[in-house]
Write a protein that binds this DNA or RNA. Structure first.
Lengths: 208, 208
DNA sequence: ACTCCAATCTTGTCATCAGCAAGATAGGTT
DNA sequence: AACCTATCTTGCTGATGACAAGATTGGAGT
């Protein structure tokens, strides 16, 4: 039957994308606990049961959103490292800046990506996406201390990631510099990054 | 009326405590998203509406649990620092060990305490409890670099906390050393702490 | 000892949620 | 043109948080 111009088409056409997109906004607005499948459906203008044909459960949708988050995180790290030139230490700082910038722009998504729940989502692509971000970081650290032993490298990979991740995490949680301007916060972040890189360089300089 | 020995007393007597206790176990079992007020009530053997008389909302109960978590965290940090003697650097490492030990023993609670939601709970005692943990940390860092300028001190407080918090956070999320034994993980944690303290000491040695 | 009252706990209800079932529609395939 | 499968719908079930109204309790004041 020919439908009137104003009638809603029965088939959405790009519902999966629409749900991911709506879900991502909803996530930032309402937080992880306020996220509901039905609200996603409402925002995509479909019935409450429509999402089931694209995502087996609410966790499935969250996993997809988190996976895309990791892809974006990786891209942000790469881009900022590239902007920082060829010097390994500068690139490591840049990658950290990219990491923090992504987190600051997507605080709730970032929290979801690094939450305990996300780790139990059993989504292979999610684990894959997370690993590629990790490898990017690992390579950047190792490039700074190419002469160090494997043990030292591993420890510095841990340490560097912990410093970057810990700093931005504490900021997003409001534990650090609540009243600071975003400009001042950026300066504090850069200071933390500098301290981290310096520590890595020193540790790498003592071979063994 | 005299009630039979087997009859359940109408008044619980210590329901608030029972709910906090049950809620804490439930939290670790089911995670933040699996936490429900009704299950807490069930475990305390009261009706589903009973908790309302002790906690205005589910967030209120979570805030109380988080507040107690901060008190325990502070205690764990203090105790481990005390065990580490009087040397400031050793005490800072010890405090970090206490921090990580608490987090490892209460992973979900720890995640809750440092989640975005917890920050919006609007519970004065929660903010208070969080601050006292922060001050403990600040003092421990400043004791290591008493001669440093205020700026350097502030930056090292940021940095040290970020390193400790970031490391244990990544471990609890399963991002770091998934397959490591807890013994190996502890070693990696200590390595991160050492690198952190060394960096703080060096930075503090350059006055200004 | 008696009364009364406020705190505590109960049952019952409502709107909302995730997930499932069964039926309607659409777009593509043979 | 017939069909067939993915997509989307309405309509349920069981559970949740919050609220309302009533029952019970223990204690404060007389």
């Amino acid at each position: 039957m020919a439908r009137a111009k104003t009638a809603k088409p029965y088939h959405h056409g790009e519902l999966r994308e629409a749900l991911v997109s709506a879900g991502r906004k909803l996530l930032e607005e309402k937080g992880v606990r306020g996220f509901t499948l039905r609200e996603c459906a409402r925002r995509a203008a479909v019935s409450h049961a429509a999402p089931a044909h694209h995502f087996a459960s609410i966790d499935d949708l969250l996993a997809e959103i988190a996976t895309r988050g990791y892809h974006e995180l990786t891209a942000a790290m790469s881009a900022e490292a590239r902007r920082s030139g060829n010097e390994p230490a500068a690139r490591l700082v840049g990658q950290g800046v990219g990491y923090m910038a992504f987190a600051a722009a997507n605080p709730v998504l970032f929290q979801l990506m690094f939450s305990r729940e996300a780790n139990r989502f059993e989504a292979p692509e999610l684990a894959e996406a997370a690993k590629s971000a990790y490898h990017l970081h690992r390579e950047a650290v190792e490039a700074v201390i190419p002469q160090a032993s494997g043990d030292v490298k591993e420890r510095m990979v841990d340490f560097a990631w912990a410093a970057v991740h810990g700093f931005i995490t504490l900021v997003l949680e409001g534990q650090l510099g609540e009243k600071d301007s975003s400009r001042a916060l950026k300066a504090r972040g850069l200071a933390a990054l500098s301290a981290m890189v310096e520590a890595v360089v020193r540790a790498g300089g003592e071979p063994g």
